[in-house]
Each structure stands twice: as structure tokens, then as C-alpha cells.
Amino acid sequence: MSTWDGLEHLHMDCLFLAPGQRGLGLGALLMDAVSAEARALGLTEIQWQTPTWNEGAIRFHDRLGARAQEKTRFTLTVER
């Protein structure tokens, strides 16, 4: 469930390809498969994240037509 709009979505933590596998069209094929899974589940949105410094990934996501959303990510170290 998305806290942004209260709608269910398919969450993909991130999309990663090893450097030697990039530029071969595999990312687009993987995103096609993820999109097909979302459709099969009756979902209309996929959400994922990528670091702001990963300019290559951001260009790839832009080419897909994905829209970036502002978000602040928090981490909290828990003492043992």
C-alpha cells in the first residue's frame, strides 16, 4: 500500500544489472516482465528507488517514462 496515495502498487526495491550486462536491452526486458507481473496482479503502478547519484539509472528510468518523486530516506542505527 502506498503511503503517498493509499493505493496498492508493486514495489521493486531497485533494478540492478552488473556493469557488463548494461546497454544490452536487458533492463528494458526486466521492466517489461515486472510490468506484466503488476498487470497480472491487477495493479496499476510500480514503485522503486535509486540513489540520486546514480545518473545512468536515472536516465534509464526517464527513458521508460517513469516519474521521480521526492522522498527522504531515513536510516537508524540500533545499538546492540
Rank of each mutant, 00 (worst) to 15 (best):
A28F: 07
M1Q: 05
T52F: 02
D62F: 03
E8A: 14
D32T: 15
E79M: 15
K71V: 15
L64R: 02
A36G: 13
E45W: 08
L64F: 01
D62A: 13
A38L: 08
A28V: 07
S35R: 15
L64V: 00
T52R: 07
G6H: 09
W48A: 03
L15T: 09
T50L: 03
A36C: 12
V34Y: 07
L64C: 04
A38V: 07
L26Y: 11
A40G: 12
R59H: 11
E37T: 10
F60T: 07
L30V: 13
L41A: 14
L26T: 00
R59Y: 07
A40W: 04
G65I: 03
L76Y: 15
A66K: 00
L29I: 02
W4H: 10
A33W: 09
R63M: 05
R39I: 14
P51Q: 14
Q69M: 12
N54H: 10
E45F: 06
M12N: 12
E8P: 15
S35T: 14
E79H: 15
T50N: 04
T44K: 08
L76A: 14
L41T: 02
T52P: 02
W48Y: 11
G42N: 02
N54R: 07
M31S: 08
R63H: 11
H9I: 10
G27T: 01
Q49K: 10
W53C: 08
A40Q: 08
R73L: 05
A57C: 12
T77C: 04
S2R: 11
H61N: 04
R80L: 14
T50Q: 05
F16N: 07
C14F: 07
L26R: 05
S2N: 12
H61A: 06
F74G: 06
E55L: 14
A57D: 06
T52G: 00
A57P: 06
W4T: 12
Q21P: 02
G23E: 09
A40C: 05
T77G: 03
L24Q: 12
A38M: 09
H61C: 02
W53K: 05
D62L: 10
F16T: 10
D5P: 03
A36E: 13
I46A: 01
G56C: 04
D62I: 07
A66Q: 01
R63W: 00
W4S: 09
R80A: 14
R22W: 01
L76D: 01
H11Q: 11
L30W: 04
E37C: 09
E8R: 15
S35V: 06
R63C: 01
A28S: 11
A57W: 06
A38N: 07
L30Q: 10
E70P: 02
L43A: 06
V34C: 10
G6S: 10
M1L: 08
T52Q: 05
A66E: 00
D13L: 11
R80Y: 08
G6L: 08
D13K: 10
